[in-house]
């Protein structure tokens, strides 16, 4: 049964991904001029001339002389074969550039998601159970401020504190000696040592809103008669709260993964630019500023797909956790 549901949701993703690819393609097409004119202009800046044969070759490869929809299908066809086009700025195939950065982006996003959950759940429960105590007020206040602070401002402030009070540059994901080293166990450890700062910066906003959601959901449940019944039967307060109301309140919590992930991916772009992390954000910004549209389009496509996958995961988790949600 569950497999049929997953299969169905996978099929349901196809139109979504199709729409995402159209949006990305339109963004590639948006700037004036096409890929080749920009490419030739770029080469001209460094006094290089592309001979007519290679121009024709490239033109045929991307189908630039054909109508827009043909170009689109050509682009998608190439995508399905793993060819994302060429980055003229880097003079490399886009697929060589994006994967490692996307990998780090996924790693950062999911680390932040775990951090957010690990923090928001206990704090939200505490805040609901000890409603209107000093602790609850402190949590609510911090939560509001966390929601109102843009990611990049938080990143800047933490960097400022790092530089002024600790004299250390806290940007980046790796120490210099690991930056270009091949992947090894030591490099992974080094990554984890650097990951905490971006995770905190990124996670604050989402944690704050999840705490509020958890608190509100749990408050709704705590007044239900079944809670009184369980208490009257002499269940310990801890077991009572964890076993019944928390499980019910968790339901909307899980479905938030669907909207938290797009926010995280968005936030990760800005935060990564401020903290100069080797993730998708900075390279995408650079590509956009220099109108390197195939590279930028690939990032838009991959980042959007990531959030669509996140929605799928949240739907599946929801079904697994809550027997009341039907497979249909």
């Amino acid at each position: 049964m569950i497999w049929r549901f997953i299969l169905k949701r996978l099929l349901y993703m196809i139109p979504f991904l199709f729409a995402v690819s159209i949006v990305s393609f339109l963004l590639i097409q948006a700037p004036p001029g096409d890929y080749l004119t920009t490419y030739i202009a770029k080469l001209g800046e460094s006094n290089e001339v592309l001979d007519q044969a290679s121009i024709n070759n490239l033109r045929a490869r991307f189908g630039l002389d054909q109508p827009l929809y043909v170009q689109y299908f050509k682009w998608v066809g190439n995508l399905l074969q793993g060819d994302f086009g060429m980055s003229f700025e880097w003079r490399q195939p886009v697929s060589d550039l994006v994967w490692e950065r996307m990998g780090l982006t996924v790693c950062l996003s999911f680390a932040t998601l775990l951090f957010t959950w690990a923090l928001a759940m206990p704090i939200g429960i505490y805040s609901a159970v000890r409603k209107y105590t000093l602790g609850d007020y402190i949590i609510t206040t911090i939560g509001f401020i966390g929601l109102a602070t843009p990611n990049f401002l938080l990143a800047l402030i933490l960097m400022y504190i790092g530089v002024v009070h600790f004299g250390a540059d806290v940007g980046g994901l790796f120490s210099p000696e690991y930056k270009n080293a091949p992947w090894s166990w030591a490099k992974v450890v080094n990554l984890i040592e650097h990951l905490w700062l971006p995770v905190i910066v990124l996670g604050t906003g989402a944690t704050a809103s999840l705490i509020r959601i958890m608190r509100a959901n749990l408050l709704d449940e705590l007044n239900r008669p079944y809670v009184d019944t369980a208490r009257a039967k002499g269940l310990s307060e801890w077991a009572l709260i964890m076993k019944y109301p928390v499980r019910v309140a968790l339901n909307p919590f899980v479905s938030t993964i669907g909207w938290v992930l797009p926010n995280l991916v968005s936030g990760a772009v800005v935060t990564a630019i401020v903290l100069s992390l080797p993730t998708a954000g900075p390279l995408m910004l650079q590509a956009l500023l220099s109108q390197d549209m195939y590279l930028a389009g690939a990032f838009v496509l991959l980042l959007s797909s990531l959030t669509v996958v996140g929605m799928l995961i949240s739907d599946i988790l929801l079904v697994l956790l809550d027997p009341r949600v039907r497979y249909e």
């Binding site: 963004l27 700037p31 797009p262 968005s266 800005v270 956009l288 838009v300 990531l306």
Partner: peptide, 15 residues
């Protein structure tokens, strides 16, 4: 809602 807003905004603004 499923689109990550900032990459899309950035791409639009860059155009």
């Amino acid at each position: 809602l499923s689109l990550p807003t900032i990459p899309i905004w950035l791409a639009l603004a860059a155009a």
